[in-house]
């Protein structure tokens, strides 16, 4: 088995996909770092201070003003109320919600890339893992060796899991390394609050706990990894089913983007919560943002994704081992 995985790794590295992904992540992190830096500067100029309490107070005032406007929708109002309550909670407990430093940047970067950017990078690798063998015609050589088909597919899947882990490690290392140049590398121990839960009556703070940022990040990374594996497995399945890499990528891309769009408009369509793509923002549960559909919780999303993952894996193996190759 390890020889087969070695083979897949050889091909993956020769295709130079991982390097391309690392470059894309690097460039984006640089862009975000600069954007973040600019934002902090303008804030400082506007308020004339760099004290986070003043900034947070100003934000609370802003949010309250927006809430009093009559033109905003109920949905949006609820979201704003929740974030207002959170901001107040942070202020009351004298905790900076975004302690400056590379670890905080990393957290924000992860939270914003979990539902589209990281899945996209994973897709680049996963979607041609099997279909490229078909388009090159090498599948004929691969399947006429004295090796059972399921073993060949399993070696490819394990390679995918390794690659996904590597991508997330690259994202972590690059976002820490690059942003640290600007924001400094400290801040691992900064306190952060988690455990907010959204109920019908609003924000429930009874289970809120204080965590060190590094522990929080560890959990964030776990969630991002889980999402990346699920998305990777789904692209993998499409790669088995659809022999054209471009078509497979197109389908997956459409699903991911539709997820981002649906998140903003499905609150009244309850059964949409079983789609995998509206369940990808797992890190939002950690922060206590309102879910896109009422009644969605972290465990619900985890379970939904798990079902999608298992189904995709099963379909991949069934089709790959049975199918006639022309």
């Amino acid at each position: 088995m390890h020889k087969l995985i070695q083979n897949e790794m050889l091909k993956l590295i020769a295709k130079k996909r991982l390097i391309v992904i690392a470059i894309i992540i690097g460039v984006l992190v640089m862009l975000f770092t600069y954007a973040q830096y600019k934002q902090i500067q303008t804030q400082r100029e506007k308020l004339g201070t760099s004290d986070w309490r003043t900034i947070l107070q100003q934000q609370i005032v802003d949010t309250t003003n927006r809430l009093s406007s009559s033109r905003i929708s109920d949905e949006w109002k609820k979201q704003l109320q929740i974030s207002l309550q959170q901001q107040q909670y942070y202020l009351e407990h004298d905790i900076n919600p975004s302690e400056p430093g590379a670890p905080t940047f990393m957290r924000i970067f992860l939270e914003n890339s979990i539902d589209l950017f990281i899945p996209l990078m994973v897709m680049v690798i996963a979607s041609d893992l099997v279909s490229s063998e078909h388009s090159l015609g090498t599948v004929k050589l691969l399947l006429t060796r004295p090796v059972k088909r399921w073993k060949i597919l399993l070696s490819k899947y394990i390679t995918l899991c390794l690659a996904v882990s590597l991508i997330i490690a690259i994202a972590g290392i690059l976002s820490y390394g690059i942003s640290g140049l600007v924001f400094g590398y400290k801040g691992w121990g900064a306190p952060i609050l988690t455990g907010f839960s959204v109920t019908d009556t609003g924000l429930n703070t009874s289970e809120v706990r204080l965590l060190s940022l590094w522990k929080f990040l560890l959990m964030d990374f776990g969630l991002v990894w889980f999402v990346a594996i699920v998305v990777g497995t789904l692209s993998f399945m499409l790669s088995v089913l659809i022999r054209s890499t471009a078509a497979g990528m197109g389908v997956m891309l459409a699903a991911l983007i539709s997820g981002a769009i649906l998140n903003n408009m499905v609150s009244s369509w309850k059964s949409a919560k079983f789609f995998f793509m509206v369940n990808l923002r797992l890190t939002d549960y950690m922060k206590g943002n309102a879910p896109p559909i009422e009644g969605m919780t972290l465990s619900f999303s985890l379970l939904t994704l798990l079902v999608w993952w298992a189904a995709a894996l099963m379909v991949s193996f069934m089709v790959f081992t049975k199918r006639d190759v022309y």
């Binding site: 020889k3 087969l4 070695q6 083979n7 050889l10 091909k11 020769a14 295709k15 090159l136 015609g137 090498t138 004929k140 050589l141 691969l142 060796r145 004295p146 090796v147």
Partner: peptide, 18 residues
């Protein structure tokens, strides 16, 4: 049809490993 992005040797190595 062999892997165009690998060398001839790596192609053979790839299939020898199987």
């Amino acid at each position: 049809e062999l892997y165009p992005y690998l060398s001839g040797y790596n192609n053979l190595l790839h299939f020898a490993r199987m």
